[in-house]
Simulated assay, not measured.
Amino acid sequence: MTDLPSLRETLDAHGLLARKSFGQHFLLDLNVTRKIVRLAGPFEGRPVIEVGPGPGGLTRALLESDAGQVVLVEKDARFAPLLSELDDGSGRLTIVEGDALKVREAELVQGPAHLVSNLPYNVGTPLLIKWLTGPWTPHALTLMFQKEVAERIVARPGEDDYGRLAVIAQATAQARIVMHLPAAAFTPPPKVASAVVHLIPRADRPAPELLKRLERVTAAAFGQRRKMLRSSLKPLGGAALCEAAGVDADARAETVDVPGFMRLARALKS
């Protein structure tokens, strides 16, 4: 990796600029990408999937690490030739051109795998929900989001950012913010700051059917978050559902903790 031209030189050589339609903001400082990879590791030879590698700043750091197979999922075909330049012929690097929302991760790697990505801003939340609630469970996730999204993931009951995303993320994983980055760290700089969230899926992650119920309950509760649960959850059973779950029907969604929402999901009839 040390013999390669800088990321900025590589972008210039290929005549590439970030595309706003893809939510692209590049991390070109290798000191930053190496720190993110250190926070994500150790990998101990396990495979790593990176979504939206762009010019390959995180990719270079991953290839310097103790990761095993490094699989890149890139929707923007312009970057394929640039990323191919990182392949040393060992078979360790795999480049997949496709939409990360549609790929099947279980077909890309074998065994427990990490996800390490500077996610495109426009698909960060749906990708996280896919990985936390879908059939394939990663070993760990270290992901860059807009700061406001990162704060919604780790928010606690009673906080302004606490909502549906926090409940689903914390019901399925342990989540914490491990790094903050200013907009100036990116090229081009976005209008907001960013943060890296590290998530470890829970061993007792709810079964798929229960997760579907949790999504229904949180959608209803936070869809009218200023109303009491007896009103916001009325289509799902209202006060009777709350009573069955042992949750105060006069409470508002923003004050109910994750275990409380899990009880509501269990009490909800399929």
Rank of each mutant, 00 (worst) to 15 (best):
W136P: 05
N118I: 05
Y162D: 07
T125Q: 11
V123H: 07
T125H: 12
V116Q: 04
W131G: 03
T142S: 13
D161N: 12
S117V: 02
E148M: 10
P135W: 02
Y121V: 10
T137S: 13
W131V: 10
D161C: 05
Q146V: 14
W131M: 06
Y162H: 14
T142C: 15
A113Y: 15
P112K: 02
T133W: 00
E159P: 12
P135D: 15
N118P: 05
S117T: 03
E148A: 07
L128W: 00
K130V: 14
G111V: 06
W131S: 02
T133K: 00
N118F: 08
N118V: 04
P157A: 12
M144C: 13
A150W: 02
M144Q: 14
V116P: 00
Y162Q: 10
W131L: 09
Y162R: 13
T137C: 14
E159W: 06
G158A: 13
T142F: 12
S117D: 06
L143F: 05
E107K: 06
M144P: 01
L128Y: 00
A155H: 09
N118W: 01
E151K: 08
E151Y: 01
V123G: 08
I129Q: 13
E159C: 11
G134D: 00
K130Q: 14
R156V: 14
T125K: 08
E105A: 07
L119T: 03
E159T: 12
H139T: 02
A113H: 14
P126K: 12
I129D: 04
E148H: 01
Q146K: 11
H139Q: 13
P138M: 07
G158S: 13
G134A: 14
L128G: 02
L132Y: 01
L115H: 00
V154N: 03
V149L: 10
T133S: 06
A140K: 04
P112T: 06
G111W: 03
T133N: 05
V116D: 04
T133C: 09
L128Q: 02
S117W: 00
N118H: 08
P112S: 09
P138N: 08
L128N: 05
K130L: 15
L141C: 00
P138G: 04
P138I: 11
A106L: 07
Y121H: 11
Q146I: 15
E107P: 08
T133G: 04
L127K: 02
L143N: 00
E159S: 11
Q146W: 07
P112I: 07
R156G: 12
D160M: 15
Y162V: 05
P157D: 03
L132S: 04
I129V: 15
F145E: 07
T125E: 11
A155Y: 06
Q110S: 15
W136Q: 08
H114T: 12
D161Y: 06
L128P: 00
K147L: 14
V109E: 01
E159H: 10
V116W: 08
P157S: 12
V116H: 02
A113P: 03
P157T: 10
L108R: 02
T137R: 15
E105L: 11
Q146S: 13
A150D: 09
S117Y: 03
A113I: 08
R152P: 08
E148S: 12
L108S: 04
A113C: 14
L115A: 08
V123C: 11
D161I: 02
K147D: 10
Y162T: 12
H139M: 04
L108V: 13
E151S: 03
G124P: 01
E105Q: 07
N118S: 15
P120F: 01
T142A: 09
E107N: 08
V123N: 01
E151F: 05
